[in-house]
């Protein structure tokens, strides 16, 4: 995508759906992050608004943060796979590619390379967004190999610790002993160490968090995208509870996320010295660029 491809021809503007025209007039395309971004959510036309996710879905909330945090939405492509998340991601006003059963990081490798060849003078951001099943179980080999190859794109894992939209099977990211609707005996091995795997495989910036603070969540997303542009693969491992499969009452979803923040999703951030230097440069250039 680019701005030219979303600006309506003047003669046709009145025929386009209202929602689209508002997106062009009041959306974040081509505007400074300080004017839009997560701090101003609700005050501009956001890239994803309506979605078919469950009431109280923490994943849907985090997906809204992802799209509000994009540094360059008009030149961004997202790639996902089977799972709840893609139902909302595909409704965003950013091109979305649906990878079959976990191949999102393999597809992103090709697309990132193709973008660099096709648009050598422009920065295109590629982000894969998938669940714990798509990223660490079914798509595990493709995720790991993309990192080993040092492919320059951002990987975001929406970890709800369960296969949420197929009835509640255990995933590699469920904790040991987790009893789920389709795992009545309880999981008999522990949660996979996704963050350590990412660091070992060569990611230059890795974050694990429970996104209770939108500014902190957005900062991590933007840092991951900036580092992926220049240095190598980046990974965000984020807790996005499934309140249906884990029976969390809707009013308690935020409380649950806060508790996770004190436990196994305590904020951890890894960056290589090069990434650290890059962030220092970017963040000193303009304080609002990453905030």
């Amino acid at each position: 995508m680019s701005l030219r491809y979303m600006t309506p021809a003047s003669k046709f503007k009145r025929y386009l759906p209202k929602d689209y025209v508002e997106l062009v007039d009041y959306g974040p395309f081509g505007r400074k992050y300080s004017e839009v971004g997560v701090k101003n959510m609700g005050a501009y036309k956001e890239l994803v608004e309506e979605h078919p996710m469950c009431s109280g879905c923490w994943m849907a909330y985090y997906i809204k943060i992802i799209f509000a945090a994009l540094p360059n939405p008009e030149d961004t492509v997202t790639i996902g796979t089977a799972g709840c998340g893609r139902l909302a991601i595909s409704q965003a006003a950013v091109p979305f590619i649906y990878g079959n059963y976990g191949d999102q990081n393999a597809m992103a490798s090709g697309i990132t390379r193709a973008f660099r060849l096709r648009f050598p003078d422009r920065q295109k951001d590629v982000i894969t967004i998938a669940g714990d099943g798509g990223m660490m179980d079914i798509g595990f080999s493709m995720t790991m190999h993309a990192w080993f190859r040092r492919e320059r794109f951002t990987t975001i894992m929406l970890d709800n610790e369960v296969y949420g939209n197929t009835g509640g099977q255990e995933s590699g990211m469920s904790v040991e002993g987790a009893v789920l609707k389709m795992s009545p005996k309880g999981k008999n091995f522990g949660k996979m160490p996704a963050m350590q795997l990412a660091i070992t495989a060569g990611c230059v910036y890795v974050v694990k968090m429970s996104p209770t603070n939108i500014n902190k969540a957005a900062k991590a997303i933007r840092r991951a995208i900036f580092a992926a542009r220049n240095l190598g693969p980046t990974f965000i491992h984020v807790y996005t509870s499934c309140n249906i499969e884990y029976s969390i009452p809707t009013p308690d979803v935020f409380k649950d996320a806060k508790e996770m923040e004190k436990g196994r999703f305590a904020f951890e951030e890894f960056m290589t010295p090069e990434a650290k230097e890059l962030f220092a440069q970017i963040e000193s250039k303009t304080k609002r660029e990453v905030s």
Binding site: R4, Y5, P8, A9, K11, F12
Partner: peptide, 18 residues
């Protein structure tokens, strides 16, 4: 290809289609 003003030809076509 004609709804968006991505090239001069597209803009011309938009006017003509109207």
């Amino acid at each position: 290809q004609v709804l968006y003003a991505w090239s001069e030809e597209a803009k011309k076509k938009a006017t003509l289609i109207k």
